[in-house]
Measured scan of single mutants.
Amino acid sequence: SFNTVDEWLEAIKMGQYKESFANAGFTSFDVVSQMMMEDILRVGVTLAGHQKKILNSIQVMRAQMN
């Protein structure tokens, strides 16, 4: 498990989005775990492969939080 959203993004090789997530207010796992595709688009993730990777990881995160 990760301590910060930045660490999580690095771990899934999506570190290039750290600033975008932070600027959009997605700075805690409570918020990130609620993200939908529209949120991912809003933070500027436009590549389908990256969207899928982030969404898949969020689903895993949700499962671990319950």
Rank of each mutant, 00 (worst) to 15 (best):
F29W: 07
M35L: 12
I12P: 01
F2R: 06
N3C: 09
V60R: 08
D6V: 06
Q64N: 12
M65Q: 09
M37E: 10
N56C: 11
S28W: 04
W8E: 00
M36F: 08
E7F: 05
N66R: 02
D39E: 05
K13Y: 14
A24G: 10
K53G: 05
H50F: 03
E7Y: 05
M65N: 07
D30T: 11
I40L: 14
T27K: 08
H50D: 15
L9Y: 02
F2I: 11
G49H: 15
Q64G: 11
M65E: 06
V43T: 06
A22C: 07
V32S: 01
N23Q: 13
R42Y: 12
I58W: 01
S57Y: 12
M36G: 15
K13H: 15
G15W: 05
A11R: 08
Y17W: 04
K13P: 01
F26D: 01
W8L: 02
F21C: 02
D30R: 14
A48C: 08
V45R: 00
M14C: 07
E19P: 06
N66C: 11
F26A: 06
M61S: 02
D39V: 03
W8D: 00
Q51G: 05
S28E: 06
V43R: 01
S33C: 07
V32W: 02
F26Y: 15
I54F: 05
A24W: 08
E7C: 06
A63E: 15
E10C: 06
M61Y: 05
H50V: 02
N56K: 13
E38Q: 10
E38C: 08
E19N: 11
L9N: 01
N3F: 09
N56Q: 14
D6T: 08
K18I: 10
V45D: 00
I58G: 00
Y17L: 03
V43F: 02
W8P: 01
Q51N: 04
I58L: 06
V5S: 02
A22P: 01
K53F: 14
T27I: 13
D39H: 05
H50L: 03
M14W: 01
G25L: 04
M61E: 03
E38V: 10
N3T: 12
F26C: 06
R42I: 11
N66F: 03
N56D: 15
S33Q: 08
N3K: 14
V45C: 04
I54W: 01
A22L: 11
K53M: 14
T46I: 14
K53S: 09
V32A: 02
S28N: 13
L55F: 11
Q16H: 07
I12K: 02
M35T: 01
I12N: 05
L55C: 07
K13F: 11
I58E: 00
M36D: 15
V43S: 05
T27R: 10
W8G: 00
M35W: 03
S28L: 04
S33V: 13
E19W: 09
F2K: 06
V60G: 10
Q59E: 15
E10Q: 07
S1Y: 14
I40E: 00
S57E: 15
D6H: 08
N23P: 02
G25I: 02
F21T: 01
A11H: 15
S57D: 09
F29K: 04
M65K: 04
N66H: 11
F2G: 06
G49V: 14
G25C: 05
V32M: 03
D30W: 11
G15H: 08
L41K: 12
M14A: 04
V60Y: 12
E19F: 07
S20K: 13
Q34R: 10
G15Q: 08
F26L: 08
S1C: 11
E10W: 04
K18Q: 07
K52M: 13
F29E: 02
I40N: 00
M36Q: 15
I40M: 07
K13S: 14
F2V: 09
M37S: 06
L55K: 04
G25V: 02
G49D: 15
F21M: 04
A11C: 09
I12A: 03
D39A: 04
G49S: 15
D30C: 11
S33A: 11
V45F: 01
K13G: 14
V31L: 15
D6C: 06
A63T: 12
M14N: 01
W8Y: 02
N66M: 06
Q34C: 08
S28I: 04
D30K: 14
W8Q: 00
S57L: 08
S57Q: 11
N56F: 08
R62L: 14
F29G: 03
R42W: 07
V31T: 12
Q34F: 07
I58F: 02
R42H: 12
W8A: 01
S28K: 07
D39L: 03
Q34E: 12
L55W: 15
G15P: 08
R62C: 07
V32T: 03
E19M: 14
N56A: 14
R42Q: 10
M14R: 01
R62G: 06
E10V: 10
G49Y: 12
D6F: 09
I58M: 02
M36W: 07
I40V: 10
A22H: 13
S1P: 15
I54A: 01
S28Y: 05
V45L: 02
E10S: 07
Q59Y: 12
N23K: 13
I58N: 00
N3L: 11
T27E: 05
L41N: 06
L9G: 00
R62Q: 09
N66P: 08
M14Q: 03
I40A: 02
Q64K: 05
M65F: 07
W8I: 00
E38G: 09
I40Q: 00
K18V: 07
Q16E: 10
S33G: 06
A11D: 13
L55S: 05
I12M: 11
Q16G: 07
I54S: 00
